[in-house]
Structure formats: structure tokens, C-alpha cells
Design a protein around this nucleic acid. Structure first.
Lengths: 221, 221
DNA sequence: GACTAGATGTCGGGG
DNA sequence: CCCCGACGTCTAGTC
């Protein structure tokens, strides 16, 4: 990783055009070749960047750094003055372990659909439709089809998504009629209202509690 | 901006849990207080981060950096060894000028609605409805109302957005019946399918060509 | 503060 | 490789 603190101007031409007037910024070049220009604020997002794969050509004498990629995008950095510089090999990162995202929530609910509603049985996870996969397809105690959409945070677009799936699922005579249940750790008031007008049910589930139920069940076997 | 290259382990507890085993990484602390942990690859996104506003407490002796925020999230960095360090004031950045995003596409199309469909005349840009503004409201050659939604890339949620607007516009007896056209530089297959089922038309436009048409017209006057 | 919609979104998974 | 949906999305604008 090469870190250069420099007074510079920057131009990007590609998906859009962008220009940065002269100022002191951090230029970060990673081992995979990606380049990022950071200001001293504005969260972790750089002002400008160019992802790998790309080609970086540096004319040290002219202070001209030009990054190009196969898509025809160009990032041009004009370095007026270098204030500090660090260059160091970091090696490959052992990587990140995550826990608590939607995929895990879906796993837990797939294993315990009765948490959503009594008598619910799983037919399939990621049940495919023409406009994308439904998180869970189930049958209820009466054998009727139930489509489940799972979100970490339940907002309006999640309800829309489920409504779309229902529209398509209800065209299938083998499944029809299909009702929907929107499941999330927390469901926003507007999402509840919209679900109501779409005749879609909603259930809030507690992630930690759910993990508890699962370990409880494992303990019994 | 403080840059520290260090062998470290990192833990994040908040919206999810994440753990980074010991490795050499870059720790970036910006003037606004935000903290980011970068590996030597993986585009510009850090492995872990904590946005401002937050509180950073450093126990130099123990090599323990703890960042907390009001939402109850915690980023804990255990620094085992510091390999390099730079500290520098960058000052406030003069900011970024952009060109070529959706707003500009809307301008161009507002000036040339016939690119979307023959005989189309603009009534108003950002025509207000109860649930937000429609990009363009037009009349076609027969005087019928047409609502236009413009995206750079046409995906499913853009179709949904237009469908919502149409639902509201069609309640207005002065406008009714209103049909919709979804316009983008590129429209994804699934978005086309959904538009079809919603009786919404769609048109792909070429941004560069459109700029050409506009400059051509300017030249004629 | 809540809600909406854009983003050079980025990233990962499946076909 | 495209297509699609999640993301600790982030961010800016409006109400």
C-alpha cells in the first residue's frame, strides 16, 4: 500500500465527469492497483477513486498520475507537491467474519417457520419467480401457500417486493391462492400501513430470541 | 488525518458483529473523527469503519483503541505493533464538481421529449404528487397525459416508483387517463417484464447521442 | 427527526 | 459474464 499526502488536482472521466480543484489530499494506492483520493472528512468514501483492475502510469517528473481501465474510464491526478509518503506491503488479509445479517435470519426462520405463524411448514427457500426469488415459500396448517419476505429492517420497499412476488405467484394455478407475510426485526409504521392496504401480514421477530429457540431445539435432540 | 500502519485485531459490535484476526492494516482517522480500517485490496471500502459523530478513546500503553457512538455501536482496535505513522492536517476540501448524473439526463430529455416518443410535449418537470414529484409530465400528440420516470439504469424499483405515481395521477380527473413511460440509458430484463405487466412503456436513450442532439439544435439557432 | 430516492454505489451469489 | 438483491449501505434533499 502506497500512501501519499499531496497537494493535487484530480479529474475523473467515465460514468460521469468530476473535477477536484487544488487541495491537500491523501492518495491511497492498494496492492491490487485500486486508487482512492481521500479528503480529511466525509466518512470512508473517497472523493474520487478507480477500482481494480486498472492501469496506473506515473510520470514522476511531471507529477502526473493517470489511471485507466478497460471500461474507458480515466482518473487523472496532478500532483503539485508531496507532503508525506509511506510505502508498505501489508500482505493478504485473513478476512472478515460477519454474523447477524439477513442470510442468517433467513436460515433461522427456514428452520423454524412456526415462529412466523402456527402450523407453517417450509416448502423451499429462495423459491424462484420470473422477477426474482422469494425468501421462503411455505404451506400453512390448511395447506394454503404462504410467501415470506425477510428483512433485517422492514421498510416500504420490502413490502413492495413481496407484493410483486405475490402478483406472480398467484398466476400459478398450483400455488394459488398465495398470501404473504412480511417478517423483520423491526417494521416501520409506513411499511405496516402499506402491508395492510396490500392484505399482507407482518411479523416482527427478535433475532437473539430466535437464536435462543434454535439452540434450545438443538439441545433437545 | 492520522494514518497508522499497524498489526492489529479489530472487532465491531453494532448492527452486526464482525471480527478481524491479527494482520497488518491501515488505520485511518479523519479530522471529523471517522475511523476506517483498510486492507491492501478490496476497492475503496474499508474492512471496518465507524462514521462521525463518535468518540475515540486511545489507551496507547495497552494498544487499545475504542470507538463508540450514540447508537450503541462499538469498534475496538487492538494494536499489537505500529509499523509506520503519519499525522497531517489537510484542511477543508474545496469540494467536488460532478456532471452527467440523472439530473442532467432529465434536463436533456425535458428539452427534447420527442426523443422519448413522437409528438410528446413537456407540461412540467418535477410535477408534484402526494407521494413525491414525477420526473416529467407530458402530453402526447392526442393530448393524453404521459408521466415519465427517468433513471440512469432502469431497474425494477424505478418501475415501481412510476407505477405509484401513475396510481395517484390517475385519481386527478383533469389528467386522467395517464399512461407511463420508463426511460433509462439501459433497462434490465426484469424491469421490462414488470413494466409490461403494469402496462408501462419503456424507452432506452443514449446519453452521448442525446447531448449531440441538443448541441445540434443549439447550433441551428 | 422521519422519509424518499440517488449512487462512478460496492459486494457477493446464482445462472 | 450478466443479473439480481443485500448492504453496518451512505448521502443529500425535503418535509
Amino acid at each position: 500500500m502506497r500512501l501519499v499526502l499531496a497537494r493535487c488536482t484530480v479529474d475523473y472521466e467515465g460514468r460521469l465527469s468530476a473535477h477536484l480543484p487544488e487541495a491537500v489530499r491523501l492518495i491511497m494506492v492498494k496492492a491490487d492497483g485500486c486508487v482512492a483520493i481521500h479528503a480529511d472528512g466525509g466518512a470512508y468514501k473517497p472523493l474520487n477513486w478507480m477500482n481494480a483492475p486498472n492501469r496506473l502510469v506515473i510520470d514522476e517528473a511531471a507529477g502526473l498520475w493517470v489511471v485507466t481501465n478497460a471500461k474507458g474510464e480515466t482518473l487523472t491526478i496532478t500532483v503539485h507537491e508531496i507532503l508525506a509518503e509511506v510505502n508498505h506491503e501489508l500482505g493478504v488479509d485473513p478476512g472478515l467474519r460477519k454474523d447477524g445479517v439477513e442470510a442468517h435470519l433467513q436460515e433461522l426462520l427456514a428452520a423454524n417457520p412456526t415462529v412466523i405463524a402456527d402450523g407453517l411448514r417450509l416448502v423451499r427457500r429462495e423459491y424462484p419467480t420470473d422477477i426474482g426469488p422469494v425468501d421462503l415459500l411455505c404451506r400453512d396448517a390448511n395447506g394454503a401457500t404462504v410467501a415470506i419476505e425477510i428483512k433485517r429492517r422492514g421498510e416500504i420497499d420490502g413490502v413492495e417486493q413481496l407484493a410483486r412476488y405475490l402478483e406472480f405467484l398467484n398466476r400459478d394455478p398450483l400455488l394459488r391462492p398465495v398470501r404473504g407475510i412480511f417478517v423483520a426485526q423491526e417494521i416501520k409504521p409506513q411499511a405496516r400501513v402499506l402491508a395492510g392496504t396490500r392484505s399482507i401480514g407482518w411479523v416482527e421477530v427478535d433475532y437473539d430470541e430466535l437464536r435462543g429457540i434454535v439452540s434450545e431445539e438443538l439441545r433437545l435432540f
